[in-house]
Simulated assay, not measured.
Amino acid sequence: MTAFSRWIPSSRPAQFILAAGALLVIAAVVVLAARGLTTYAPIQDFLQTYPGSYALPDFAPVGIPTWIGWQHFFSAFLMVLIIRSGWQVRTERRPAAFWASRWAKGTPRKISLTLWFHQSLDILWLVNGVIFVVLLFVTAQWVRIVPTSWSVFPNAISALLQYLTLQWPTEDGWVNYNSLQQLSYFITVFVAAPLAVVTGVRMSAIWPKNAKRLSAAYPIEVARAIHFPVMLYFVFFIVVHVALVFATGALRNLNHMYGGSDEVNWWGFAIFFVSLAVMVGVWFAARPVILAPIASLFGNVSSR
């Protein structure tokens, strides 16, 4: 039976096809249900009252400055690698190498080279995030992603309903995001990111070993239970974000973020393509043979 089973086609492709088909059916049902819902007069009145966004305060800046484009690239670059290395840390059974600080007192604690890479990326991501938040409030760009009106919630529901009907809400990201975008950006920057930091610190080598009361008050199991779902949130956010960028006017959206203008041309797309190539290149280059020499500059690398 064992020899014969080698000739039996794997059921995984069939399962994948069935799962994809089921998702398409569910998506079609959701779209039809959303469109049917918008035929009712109360829903139409709701959509008219709350078109999907509200007016920003008068001091709100217009346009997206160049520094946000650079911050966007660095955040995406680091987050992709953080997700990759974080998944490797979670699934790795036999690390190829280990790292230990050469400045630690007593017997240095060894961690896998993958975990060192993950935590180093976390530090860079945190520094980049702090700079981003500071610049947001210094330049008043914060008003674009921090809700300033309670109407953000009904407008977000309206925007979601419009997305589900595949009739995109009327928007101008150069001036103002729709309320669903604003809430998602706010949650990502001011909720998910801090959660990733505080849980990551608890799980890292930075956490003091002898702080028994502090460790008891904040068990590592709690941090682990939160950290992984937060990573899944970032994966979901990235997938949906990129999909909507391309589905709702790719050239203009990419020009907003990468080209620094409201024009519709290929300049932003070209910069995005180069940044994507950099991400892919580093993704494949981040291997022990490349990481070990870099890690050795900050500590001792060994095979065990």
Rank of each mutant, 00 (worst) to 15 (best):
residue 101 S to I: 03
residue 284 F to D: 04
residue 24 L to Y: 09
residue 55 A to P: 14
residue 12 R to K: 13
residue 114 T to D: 09
residue 160 L to A: 11
residue 147 P to W: 01
residue 98 F to D: 10
residue 133 V to C: 12
residue 112 S to A: 13
residue 79 M to R: 00
residue 168 W to G: 04
residue 109 R to E: 14
residue 201 V to H: 02
residue 27 A to W: 08
residue 50 Y to H: 12
residue 190 F to E: 12
residue 262 D to M: 07
residue 295 A to L: 02
residue 240 V to A: 00
residue 207 W to K: 11
residue 54 Y to R: 04
residue 209 K to G: 10
residue 105 K to M: 09
residue 154 P to S: 06
residue 17 I to Y: 10
residue 4 F to I: 13
residue 107 T to A: 07
residue 145 I to G: 04
residue 183 L to S: 09
residue 58 D to R: 14
residue 297 L to C: 09
residue 111 I to T: 07
residue 245 V to Q: 05
residue 225 A to R: 13
residue 181 Q to N: 12
residue 22 A to S: 15
residue 205 A to Y: 14
residue 149 S to I: 08
residue 198 V to C: 12
residue 31 V to M: 09
residue 198 V to L: 14
residue 62 V to G: 11
residue 246 F to M: 09
residue 300 N to W: 09
residue 59 F to T: 13
residue 75 S to W: 14
residue 92 E to S: 06
residue 183 L to C: 05
residue 285 A to H: 02
residue 157 I to Q: 02
residue 33 A to F: 02
residue 145 I to M: 05
residue 213 R to N: 12
residue 12 R to N: 14
residue 128 N to M: 06
residue 273 F to S: 13
residue 262 D to S: 15
residue 267 W to N: 13
residue 172 D to H: 12
residue 255 N to Q: 14
residue 75 S to F: 13
residue 272 F to D: 03
residue 20 A to E: 14
residue 135 L to M: 10
residue 233 Y to W: 13
residue 242 V to G: 00
residue 242 V to K: 01
residue 233 Y to I: 10
residue 19 A to F: 13
residue 42 P to L: 09
residue 71 Q to E: 05
residue 288 P to Y: 02
residue 89 V to Q: 11
residue 66 T to A: 15
residue 192 A to T: 08
residue 145 I to F: 03
residue 204 S to H: 03
residue 162 Q to T: 00
residue 27 A to S: 09
residue 13 P to D: 05
residue 78 L to Y: 08
residue 100 A to E: 10
residue 108 P to H: 08
residue 49 T to I: 06
residue 83 I to Y: 05
residue 192 A to V: 15
residue 140 A to K: 08
residue 45 D to C: 03
residue 135 L to D: 03
residue 7 W to S: 10
residue 190 F to G: 08
residue 82 I to R: 01
residue 11 S to H: 10
residue 34 A to Q: 07
residue 256 H to K: 03
residue 154 P to W: 00
residue 236 F to D: 03
residue 184 S to C: 04
residue 6 R to I: 14
residue 73 F to P: 00
residue 190 F to W: 05
residue 224 R to K: 14
residue 123 I to E: 03
residue 62 V to D: 15
residue 262 D to Y: 03
residue 60 A to F: 08
